[in-house]
Design a protein around this nucleic acid. Structure first.
Lengths: 261, 261
DNA sequence: ACCGATGGTTCAAATAATGAACCGACGGCT
DNA sequence: AGCCGTCGGTTCATTATTTGAACCATCGGT
């Protein structure tokens, strides 16, 4: 990776729980020399990707991203396309839904819609990065990803977020195969306890999977009927997105009848 | 400037009117060698700051900015702070208002609110970069900026966007002085014909001017009374922002009475 | 079949990035 | 007060990366 990549990776140190980071911390957390960090941060700062907040001189994400995001949304009206689809899905199932994208080798939450029907909901935050192996979205995307990404993801340590998290790469590989066959991914309590989620892949124009639409509900609420409904809604929503996104939804003719069987 | 800076500058080639650019164009527009461009774009792409759209393989702003923007908004709720202030300003004056920020040496439109009262409005787009010398926002910011930025901005060519645009650096310098004294900047038809705008500076916690709040109206509609109202509203709104932003609004005690006089 | 454009690649030469050591300043401690 | 650790930031010789002219393969139009 080049210098630019290293600089950009420093941006990943800023998270919701750690929105501001000092120079020394940046060096420690990233493992990069402090002088180098300083130079890189200065460069990011010059463009406005980060800014320094007085008086501690800690860094945080800068205002330039606002302009870029506005420009992105203007060129690719992602959110505006995604929102109505999500709205329909939540309306139909009564459960919360969200869309996450594969960006920079990570699964990132792009947009979500809460169901209003129930008091208990699955709460997610914007700008969150999801683990591949412990979420239905991650699994759905990984199942349709190239072998390179699969190997890389399954090669690194897979933390168990709950007792239900599957952490064995071999067993996950088998699940990915199943996911490809059935067209959707399922995760029960693997990310957070008592969360049952179903995710279906969204494909770009070239047929590569770049996102997933997921529906999540409290596990205790998921009856077989609701589960069927969630699966159908996820597949439908994902295909909607694929279409609006300019891709061609996969043939599910052979699958859907079986599911309905 | 280092490599990272050059890479980030390539992002500026993407605008609303030119949302997608091919590799050769990038090289031409930026003046950077094509091979270098390719490497830099590849690096930006790896992080998701840009993406390639098939089948032309043109580049465009990537999805990573969405996550960053969400994170930014979570850490610094800029827009959510700005919106109510803008709403109040437009409510009070009946004219459109917007806030622009100084980021990376440019004036960028961050947020805006349209007035609903009139049919004719001043239309601006999100993610727009404003010229320093031809907008009240730009002038307000420049007037309170450091000498380095002033010199740099006034040193480069100042295009005349309308016949009313002031392009003489010396005369602009004089205006900046006046703007500092009176506390607000005014621009009549200098950016677009028939647009009269008033802007007041917003200060950060360290006393440096980092943004401006502007009110824009069709010039033909601006009576002396409306103009006074616009000035008062801009100053008030800007000071509000400065406060909520954690800064200390400048003393205007000596000024406001004079305006009301 | 040609032409000119495209996106992308190669490799020696030039340039920029790197990191250990250092600096001054600040903020608890004792 | 005085000390100690840490902070953000800087220096400069060493090193590794970036750079760019030339080069491919491919595509679309004539």
């Amino acid at each position: 990776m080049g210098t630019t990549g290293k600089a950009l990776e420093l941006l990943d140190l800023f998270t919701r729980v750690r929105p501001q980071v000092g120079l020394s911390d940046i060096a420690r957390l990233s493992g990069v020399n402090k002088a180098t960090c300083h130079r890189l941060m200065t460069e990011l700062q010059a463009y406005g990707l980060v800014e320094q907040v007085e008086p501690t001189r800690e860094y945080r994400i800068g205002p330039a991203v606002l302009r870029l995001a506005a420009l992105r949304e203007e060129t690719v009206p992602y959110k505006s396309i995604v929102q109505p689809v999500l709205a329909e899905v939540t309306e139909r199932t009564g459960e919360s839904a969200h869309v996450s994208m594969l960006v920079g080798g990570r699964v990132e939450l792009i947009s979500f819609a809460y169901a209003l029907r129930h008091g208990t909901r699955v709460i997610l935050h914007d700008a969150e990065t999801l683990p591949f192996h412990a979420t239905s979205s991650g699994l759905a995307i990984l199942a349709h990803a190239g072998p390179v990404l699969q190997k890389e993801v399954l090669g690194r340590p897979l933390p168990a977020l709950t007792p239900q998290t599957e952490t064995d790469p071999v067993r996950i590989r088998a699940r990915l195969e199943a996911i490809r066959v059935q067209g959707y991914a399922e995760s029960v309590g693997a990310f957070e306890h008592d969360v049952h989620s179903i995710a279906a892949p969204v494909f770009a124009s070239q047929g590569d999977c770049i996102a997933a639409l997921a529906i999540a509900a409290p596990a205790t609420r998921v009856t077989p009927e609701l589960r069927d409904e969630m699966i159908a809604a996820a597949l439908k929503g994902a295909d909607d997105l694929t279409l609006k996104w300019g891709g061609r939804p996969p043939e599910r003719a052979a699958l859907t009848p079986i599911a309905a069987y």
